[in-house]
Design a protein around this nucleic acid. Structure first.
Lengths: 138, 138
DNA sequence: CAAGTTGGTTAATGGTATTAACTAAGCATT
DNA sequence: AATGCTTAGTTAATACCATTAACCAACTTG
């Protein structure tokens, strides 16, 4: 179990080296691929980090030319963040890479095993969530 | 999938808060519970970190009174590290906690599901290892 | 004994992440 | 319109995780 987790973390490290970007920025690119234009606060929620952390990540990404900031016409406080063309390219490349990896893993399983594995992960996730909730109540 | 991984990381964070110890020291305590007296280099290998990192973790743990260093009578360079009584207590407590959590997760699955989940994790691990190896060769 | 190897420490660096303090903008309410 | 609260975002301080490089001391081997 813990080995499976460790392996997923390794994949992040590998990605990070391969694309020469910090892991946090990679996650952030994937978030944009899913959600598109967002505010800083939304990014913080999406990445599940403090607003200040999101702010730092995004400003680093802006330095790299991956995202750009636009003022919200309806609210002078908020900054709308979106991927630049360069950011979109990166996001597409990384998304591709992840898809390929997932495909490679699944292709190493017989079709009936695939179904079983996916179902198991679902079950496991629910069980873990349930335990987690119980823990939080104590 | 990534949610399962995230949940396991959350467990580490939770443990860390609960026992008021950095995650690295918790992992280290669990390593000692498994292996007993070790050298600094062995700890580094066991935790899969650089020797320097292990050295730092262990000296922090020594400050907390969790481990003690003894010279190796056969080799003046090596330091044999072992848990103090305090360290053993902590290790036992944490080990208990982990066992309880795992038990709680498994108890939320029907017995046949349990077998399936465990088998799936095994399959998944092998598939991931295989992909990883292929990746490293490129 | 000189040369190379191994065990361990220290320092420099960089990534991850949080909390606290702060600014500026928006929204109420009097 | 002035006061006061809330929200969006930034900055600074702090802490943890981890690596590489440089180094010393001790062992091994030719």
């Amino acid at each position: 179990m813990s080995e499976v987790v460790h392996c997923c973390q390794d994949r992040m490290v590998y990605e990070s080296r391969r694309f020469n970007l910090p892991q946090a920025e990679i996650k952030c690119l994937m978030l944009f691929a899913e959600i598109g234009q967002q505010t800083v606060t939304q990014v913080a929620q999406g990445l599940d980090v403090a607003k200040s952390r999101a702010s730092n990540i995004l400003s680093d990404m802006a330095t790299r030319g991956l995202v750009s900031f636009d003022p919200d016409p309806d609210d002078g406080r908020v900054k709308l963040v979106s991927l630049t063309d360069r950011g979109k390219e990166y996001a597409a490349e990384i998304g591709d890479f992840i898809t390929r990896i997932h495909g490679a893993v699944l292709s190493r399983l017989e079709p009936p095993e695939r179904v079983m594995v996916i179902k198991s992960l679902e079950l496991l996730k629910n069980a873990m969530d349930s335990v987690k909730q119980q823990l939080e109540e104590m």
